[in-house]
């Protein structure tokens, strides 16, 4: 790892100032950043430690919404009693993320901002499109973990488990910095990379995620997070789905269906939501919603299985919630 200057920011304003310096990176849990630094994919001259920043800490119940500071670890989210009771899909998503050691260090903010897992991006000797090169090697190469939706020039998928769950809960992210400042729906926080902006969130170089707030769900609201992996645990999602439904009697009121592992950003399946809205769930409707979720999919050579997997996960999640 290349050496760097280490500074510890006492507050948000100071962190943002420090990050404006040339080639600085923010450091929270470090579980993703340090792997990239060891491979020299990122070679910052300065790391700005965020962990003493009070504004980014804590889980608070603010009457009509829950606030989770960006520095909250995945372990804290997983084991927080209030989160487990009121927002089970978030606790489930945290539970299914990484390993015990990584959850003890990794933070909410870092989980949302983590880099893609694409092996071409992670290869120290390749300058793929996302790293400023000409070519997205995955499109013609080994693409079994890559996107089936979104048609972006880089086909790596957004790897977070928390993001689909939080978007299904209508979470709002609080940002602070030079280029973005204020509250934004988490769904809009993630972007598909394009020629003008080869990145996956709206964050500029000195912008930070301060935390997220989640509105209090209706009494009739139920949710589930399902994740399909190559092994039973400690793996990134091949496909995941977060579903949160408000019921009006026996019918589905509002629905949120968000897929992970299928696109360059968490993929809200609005057409699948529309299929079930106002209807009584049953097997064939769930099947129809699953099909709608992947209707626009265009898989590559090695990832066609994701289309079937996503379709069936959506169906299974809906049927689980209808039990």
């Amino acid at each position: 790892m290349k050496n760097f200057e280490y500074v510890s920011a006492p507050n948000l304003a100071s962190a943002i100032t420090q990050l404006q310096g040339s080639n600085s990176k923010a450091l929270a849990g470090g579980t993703d950043l340090l792997t990239e630094m060891k491979e020299r994919i990122k070679t910052p001259d300065r790391l700005v430690n965020l962990k003493s920043i009070h504004e980014m800490q804590g889980v608070r119940d603010d009457k009509d919404k829950l606030w989770i500071g960006a520095l909250t670890t995945l372990s804290e989210i997983e084991s927080h009693r209030f989160i487990a009771e009121r927002y089970p899909i978030l606790a489930q998503a945290a539970y299914l993320t990484a390993s015990h050691q990584l959850r003890n260090a990794g933070t909410l903010g870092g989980n949302l901002c983590q880099s893609v897992r694409c092996w071409y991006y992670r290869h120290p000797d390749l300058t793929c499109w996302l790293k400023g090169g000409e070519t997205c090697y995955a499109q013609e190469g080994i693409n079994r973990h890559h996107a089936i939706l979104g048609n972006a020039p880089c086909i790596a998928v957004q790897p977070s488990d928390l993001a689909p769950a939080l978007i299904a809960l209508d979470a709002v992210v609080r940002l602070k910095g030079d280029e973005v400042d204020g509250d934004l729906s988490l769904d809009e926080f993630f972007v598909l990379p394009d020629e003008g902006l080869r990145q996956r969130t709206v964050l500029g170089k000195s912008d930070l995620v301060v935390g997220v707030s989640i509105p209090k769900p209706a009494a009739s609201s139920r949710g589930i997070y399902l994740k399909s992996m190559e092994r039973e645990d400690w793996s990134f999602a091949l496909v995941s789905v977060a579903v949160q439904l408000n019921f009006a009697g026996s019918k589905v009121g509002t629905a949120r269906i968000v897929l992970g592992g299928v696109a360059g950003k968490p993929w809200r399946a609005k057409s699948a939501e529309a299929v079930i809205q106002g209807k009584v769930l049953n097997d064939s409707l769930a099947e129809e919603a699953g099909a709608a979720a992947v209707a626009g999919a265009s898989p590559f050579e090695h990832n066609g299985y994701k289309v079937v997997l996503a379709k069936n996960l959506v169906k299974r999640a809906l049927l689980e919630l209808n039990k």
Binding site: T35, E39, S99, H100
Partner: peptide, 25 residues
């Protein structure tokens, strides 16, 4: 690189990967 767990130590009683932890922290 945080993939094998051989470097696991306890920090404040909780297991972490010491290879992905900076000593200065």
């Amino acid at each position: 690189e945080g993939t094998c767990g051989a470097c696991t130590v306890l920090k404040e009683g909780k297991p972490v990967y010491s290879c992905l932890t900076l000593a200065i922290e």
